[in-house]
Design a protein around this nucleic acid. Structure first.
Length: 694
RNA sequence: GCCGCCGUAGCUCAGUGGUAGAGCACACCCUUGGUAAGGGUGAGGUCAUGGGUUCAAGUCCCAUCGGCGGCUCCA
């Protein structure tokens, strides 16, 4: 006798088990037609799922009648269903494909499959696959669920002989399923079907719009030593308009890609001849980087940091002491060997494989391109005796490090093999740790607020107790983890804790953002470290005249300058705020006749250290404006005879498609100077043209 | 590193085994102009690199280098 409670609080009583679809039909014929699934006590199910007991029921329609939008649950049903349709289509187009696993995603779905080695799937197959999918959808075949007992189901799978599906079933059983379920697209045992726990839309015709997006490879179970699978990505929506909007959004996002903008705006260059993942900062990019470094340096001075410089290499032995070698040997450039050492090996008849083994083991005399800055900073700390009165010692450096990232990982400025960390290491007493952590976090906060980076996630990376990759004693870890939690709690932002995300030497607080393609990247980080002070036997003299062990904090508000600026380019779509913009103002003379006046304006700008130049091209003003807009210059000063007569400039501001009006040269330059010095808190537009921008 | 796709002028990209193309950018000339492309002329190429097939290769095959998407990894 189920009593069904609907979201509006109304209750419907039935004297026998009822399906969600029947409840919908009970409410009205329109809803009966529109319903594609149901949430029963919060769990997403088929519209045809039987409700036997009292339940809370939310009926899912493809498009919400009130909002005109699709709920996440609706899109999930559509996409998961579409994954089946795509799998069927692919098996039809390419015989011999074995299916593995096809889940829905945030923006679509994928299906992993094992393809015959002599017939890989290619993007050229997409048309045929989409045509086959369209046909299946046009046939509007029902998604028919049926269940078998585990024994019976396993027998069926054994008979079919797909090791992947057998594995899926075993996993389902291990996870506690007492039955196995299939979904046939049409009639069970006759039409195409797939082992699947569901749920699905009622029939293929309910998939409104879809597209096969891309191909990639993956590993079975995510294990690099296991089978290589082909992953086909697709997406699906409730209707064609949603799909078109999504594809437009993707196009827009691509225009913000830092690799594209980096080229267009002359921010950086990566040259084959220099090497993969090695960023060349071209003059415009160098300006952005320098401004950011200046900005962070100002904050560091306020917080009592001392700047240091270190070489880019050090003896291998140093990294053995720190533990970075051999722990991270695979992701470091191979050691640099001393010539005499190499000669001696050769004289002793050392073979290439002997040498390779020695290098892997670090049994050589030589140097390492530094993978981290901390060992160097530690040696600066220990270069003199330290009293408890000297602490905290805060050493900062824009320190360049080198890491051997796998070639397939490299990506523009965001994943590279050489990058500069806005690094610092703090050495403090136990009783100072919380305050210092708070100081570090406030620094990150100031940096991110100034740059209007709001869409970020904060993660506390904790040790995974089951893993052996960590160094140090459990009780020390607990102390450090507690300190991180306490400091992060004061940030007031949502913080997630993740096991296994700690550095090998200690827990950390990471700041994570997304790029335009939705990929997450770690930027800033604050890490507590009780381990390295131990390894390097660091001490300070306490008030008791006894040696004590300092605690270290590693922190980098931006993380890598390369990655940070890569993300920043995308965040601003290349339109940097004036203080960061490589070219802050461009002077556009109406014609050659105004060139002398343009030069006078330019001098006034240069005198105030404003960056920019004159467009000396023989173009009409329209063309000059277009060129400057494309370079995303914040302010354009159009100067012609009229302006010259009055000693003013005609101003255009980025993002406003018209002439704002004129200001005397000096007035504009002063206002601009204020905009730059305040890092955008004041602007020329707000000061002089506010009324016009509304 | 792995799987798939891709590599033609500075940039974006056409190019069907048979004489290497366009637009933009650049240079020069005409034009001297008032808020998102004025007109003309010209220069610019080891078709990523190396091998192979062929009478003939940018085009087909193999290898290498590099890029893109994803997987795996990320102190």
């Amino acid at each position: 006798m189920p009593r069904i409670t609907l979201p509006d609080g109304s209750v419907r009583a039935y004297d026998q088990p009822v399906t969600a679809a029947e409840v919908a039909a009970d409410i009205g014929p329109g809803l009966a037609k529109a319903v594609i699934g149901a949430q029963i006590n919060g769990e997403l199910r088929d519209a045809g799922a039987l409700i036997e007991q009292d339940a809370e029921l939310t009926l899912i329609t493809a498009i919400d009648r009130k909002t005109g939008e699709s709920s996440e649950a609706a899109l999930l049903l559509i996409r998961h269903s579409c994954a089946h349709v795509m799998a069927e289509a692919i098996q039809r187009v390419i015989p011999g494909v074995q299916l593995v696993y096809g889940p829905p995603l945030d923006k679509g779905f994928y299906y992993d499959m094992s393809v015959p080695p002599d017939r890989p799937i290619s993007t050229d197959d997409f048309d045929a696959i989409e045509a086959a999918m369209s046909k299946i959808i046009a046939e509007d075949r029902p998604f028919a669920r049926y269940e078998l007992a585990v024994d019976e189901g396993m027998k069926k799978l054994q008979a079919e002989g797909s090791k992947y599906k057998i594995d899926n079933a075993k996993r389902a059983v291990e996870a506690g399923s007492d039955r196995l379920s299939w979904y046939a697209t049409g009639e069970p045992n006759k039409d195409w079907e797939d082992l699947c726990k569901g749920p699905h839309v009622p029939s293929t015709g309910r998939i409104g719009a879809f597209k096969v997006m891309s191909l990639a490879s993956s590993y079975w179970h995510g294990d690099a030593n296991s089978d290589r699978l082909t992953r086909v990505y697709g997406t699906a929506f409730a209707d064609k308009k949603q799909l078109a909007d999504y594809l437009d959004q993707l196009e827009e996002a691509k225009k913000r890609d830092h690799r594209l903008l980096g080229k267009q705006l002359g921010l950086f260059h990566i040259d084959e001849a220099v090497g993969q993942g090695l960023v060349l900062w071209t003059p415009n990019g160098a300006i952005v980087r320098k401004e950011l470094q200046n900005f962070i340096s100002e904050e560091l001075r306020k917080q009592g940091y001392q700047e240091v410089f270190c070489p880019h290499i050090a003896k291998l032995e140093l990294y053995k002491t720190s533990g970075h070698f051999p722990y991270y040997a695979d992701s470091q450039f191979v050691p640099i060997m001393e010539r005499d050492f190499l000669r001696k090996l050769a004289d002793d008849g050392c073979s290439c494989s002997d040498l390779a083994n020695m290098m892997a083991a670090g049994d050589i005399e030589g140097y390492l391109l530094k993978p981290m800055n901390c060992p160097h900073h530690i040696k600066i700390y220990s270069s003199q005796p330290r009293s408890y009165r000297d602490l905290p010692v805060r050493l900062n450096e824009f320190g360049t490090v080198y890491r051997w990232e796998q070639s397939g990982e490299l990506s523009g400025m965001i994943r590279v093999r050489s990058f500069t960390i806005d690094d610092a290491h703090l050495f403090c007493r136990e009783d100072q740790l919380s305050d210092e952590l708070r100081g570090c976090l406030s620094l990150v906060k100031v940096a991110f607020e100034t740059l209007e980076l709001k869409d970020l996630r904060i993660r506390i990376g904790l040790r995974d107790p089951d893993s052996s990759k960590y160094v140090g004693e459990p009780e020390v870890w607990e102390k450090a983890e507690r300190a991180c939690r306490d400091a992060a709690a004061e940030l007031g932002t949502h913080v997630s804790e993740e096991l296994g995300e700690a550095a090998f030497y200690g827990p950390k607080i990471d700041f994570i953002v997304r790029d335009v393609l939705g990929r997450e990247w770690q930027l800033g980080t604050v890490q507590v470290d009780y381990n390295l002070p131990e390894r390097f036997d660091l001490t300070y003299t306490g008030s008791d005249n006894q040696p004590h062990r300092p605690v270290m904090i590693h922190r980098a508000p931006f993380g890598s300058m390369e990655r940070f600026i890569g993300v920043l380019i995308e965040h601003f779509a290349g339109a940097f705020p004036t203080w960061l913009a490589p070219e802050q103002v461009r002077v556009l003379p109406i014609s050659d006749k105004s060139m002398a006046y343009a030069e006078k304006v330019q001098r006034a700008l240069t005198d105030q250290r404003v960056r920019g130049g004159i467009d000396r091209n023989d173009d009409r003003i329209q063309a000059k404006i277009k060129a400057a807009v494309e370079m995303k210059v914040p302010y354009l000063l159009v100067v012609g005879p009229n302006d010259e007569r009055e000693g003013v400039v005609s101003i255009r501001a980025r993002g406003i498609r018209r002439n704002l009006g004129t200001l005397p040269i000096a007035v504009f330059v002063e206002a601009l100077r204020r905009e730059i010095d305040s890092r955008g808190r004041q602007t020329v537009v707000a000061e002089h043209f506010q009324a016009m921008t509304v």
